[in-house]
Design a protein around this nucleic acid. Structure first.
Lengths: 238, 238
DNA sequence: CAGTGGTCTAGACCACCAA
DNA sequence: TGGTGGTCTAGACCACTGA
């Protein structure tokens, strides 16, 4: 493990365990570099990540203050799969695989997914049950050439676990879009929507590998009253 | 201007101007440090920001590749005010100030805004017209003790310009939450909602200053079919 | 004022990638 | 294997905060 990762995890744990309390200062960078016996640059690398994740607020000439976090619930900033979400929220849930097949990208699908025309992809439709109600419908496209031998069983469980741990794929980043769309016939058919609801929340994601290959396209359709998205955002420098 | 900022802006411009093209590599860090006559660490500081903003993808042992960006529309990651949004989208718009007053925080309001009980705050209600329709309703609370002499005129224009440029307030970060709520009577009264629509998209933000003071609370209510949120997200390291 | 974080340098070694 | 980015060091100077 890298030095800055050790420091990062230690600081995270101490913040979580209230050794460094909300609205109080961490030891100074010089002190931390003595404590961990590393250079100040290494300490700063760990602190930068804490700041990016909204755990501390660094102030020039003053110190690094712990941002209050106890009142916050689950922060979904970044790529978060349904399974991670479920476990972090401690909710009962079930996943049902409705479609598991492959499909070739025609012009229209290629534009949607950002895959090349003619590329073969897995097409997976999954339904998620939360608190006994069908709440989320996930449609996924994975490129076959990068994820060979993906099975129905992987789809039931966590696909990402298989892709990252077993195949060693490096998922790098995603471009997401959240909109509110009209509920389709399929939505009404497969989800427990309130008949009065005309809309669902749609979360569309293009997912890319470390080499910029478009690898996955997902659309997630949520019952409107069960949807919640939170974000920690730092003010853009101008 | 700091050296890394000069490099950052130069690289941004060259990416935007297609001198460094999509899916091609930037010069290596060693080359860049020769080009700009700085240390490699300074180059890396600029590259880190480009990577955070989704402009490049860095790969160990390979190089920094320009992420395709031409197909992307407006990215709203971070704190983006209505005015910035409007100008970046080149949309016609108007702002109307419906309420401009002050209010003292009782127990309930204090919990909502995260301000201390008894604290005095500006209460501003604004309506935004897009393409001739009333589309967005913004309710703002600003702490009076940090923003003295905020006027109706500031509210008509950009409040952030006044707060940051004139008052020198350092807005640091925000915690945002997006949900779909039932449209209230007020929403129906003040917005051009489709009578069939029962919902609006609600974006709630707590905004904090550099010293962690809760300074602003905003709720923004959007006509569902006009709402769109996009995000660039890097995969969490595990 | 002494102490803090922000910027920057000139090195070093390593892990990774493509050829 | 040579070049790449990732980590790390030991310094330096500066700008900012609070007392």
């Amino acid at each position: 493990m890298k030095k800055y990762e050790v420091i990062l995890q230690d600081l995270e744990k101490k913040i979580f365990d209230d050794i460094y309390k909300e609205n109080e200062l961490l030891p100074s960078e010089n002190e931390l570099s003595k404590i961990y016996k590393v250079s100040r640059a290494t300490v700063r690398q760990a602190l930068k990540i804490l700041a990016d994740n909204g755990m501390i607020q660094q102030r020039h000439g003053f110190g690094s203050m712990v941002i209050p976090h106890k009142k916050l619930l689950f922060p979904i900033t970044g790529l978060t799969s349904f399974k991670e979400l479920r476990t972090s929220m401690h909710l009962e849930s079930e996943t049902e695989v409705l479609i598991f097949g492959t499909i070739e990208m025609d012009e229209k699908l290629a534009t949607l997914t950002d895959f090349p025309v003619g590329c073969e992809a897995y097409h997976i439709l999954r339904r998620r049950k939360l608190d006994g109600k069908y709440t989320i419908l996930d449609r996924d496209f994975f490129r076959c050439d990068y994820a060979p031998e993906l099975t129905r069983e992987h789809a039931m469980d966590s696909t990402y676990e298989y892709l990252e741990d077993s195949l060693g794929l490096e998922i790098a980043y995603a471009q997401k879009e959240i909109t509110v769309d009209f509920a389709s016939e399929e939505d009404f058919e497969l989800l427990d929507l309130n008949p009065m609801d005309r809309h669902v929340v749609s979360v569309k994601s293009h997912v890319y590998l470390a080499d910029n290959t478009p690898f996955q396209y997902t659309e997630s359709r949520h019952q409107v009253d069960k949807f919640r998205f939170t974000e920690f955002a730092r003010r853009q420098k101008r």
